[in-house]
Amino acid sequence: MSTADTVRAAPSSYLYYRHTVAVRIMHWINVIALTVLLMSGLNIFSAHPALYWGQSSYSSRPPVLEIGAMEDADNVTGVTRILGRDFDTTGLFGASRDASGEIVAATFPSWLTIPGNRWLSLARQWHFLFAWIFLVNGLCYVLYAIGSRHLARDLAPTATDWRSIGRSIIDHLRFHHPIGEASKRYNVLQKLAYLTVIFVLLPLVILMGFAMSPGLDSVIPGWVELVGGRQSARTIHFVIAWLLVAFVFVHVFEVVITGLWNNLRSMITGRYRVEGEAGDESR
């Protein structure tokens, strides 16, 4: 066959079975669980909107982060104080619009918390129920990923991946993404991002949750000191929650720019459309 024939051949796009049903189900359970955990967690945080480093909140050191509101005759300003520096965060943190559109003092806007009003006991019930769902789902995922070789086959970076890391960074910065056969595999930055979330951030956020439990703290007395104490654990728990939010923003951004419907379909039906490249004979 001449090269000219190949170029003229019918478009070689086809559907590729990308995500197994187990991965798809666990992905969406995780989406729901993490959403509820974040929103109920922010409601819990509102009960004492300050973070500290160390064992206790009442030492000689000031909080590392504080969210509050400054009110004068005609203005409410949301203030977030990080390491002693004040930031105006009106609209999001400290003060935001209520249902009637008026700016009121509130740690987080109502639409960001579960339940919508400040309600510590109910928020805790939501948080712990979905923590169980998240934990069991996560354990199932890790066992599945190892057992089915999803981890070794799709997520572990190969030697070629490590060598291509520089080019991958440049590609990402240019929003240049692989098409054709190369789009069937995760790129190296993608692999590293997923591995960091799955094996570093998520286990750590769970462990920091455990560290806040006075019951679990007693299992091995003093283990909380490994991370600086219970209040440090609470701070780390909070910071990781926002790192996960940052990951989701980047993840969804990449999903959108590399083909929203194609990506979404592949995580619902499993099928991902691979666009053929002219002259590609690797099929």
Binding site: Q125, L129, S213, G215, D217, S218, V219, P221
Partner: peptide
């Protein structure tokens, strides 16, 4: 409420009766 019971039973299972608070 069931989630709450699960937490109580789960914690009571993993925390030894005589485990001491730090």
């Amino acid at each position: 409420d069931a989630g709450e019971s699960l937490t109580r039973v789960g914690q009571r299972l993993v925390i030894p009766r005589r485990a001491m608070a730090q």
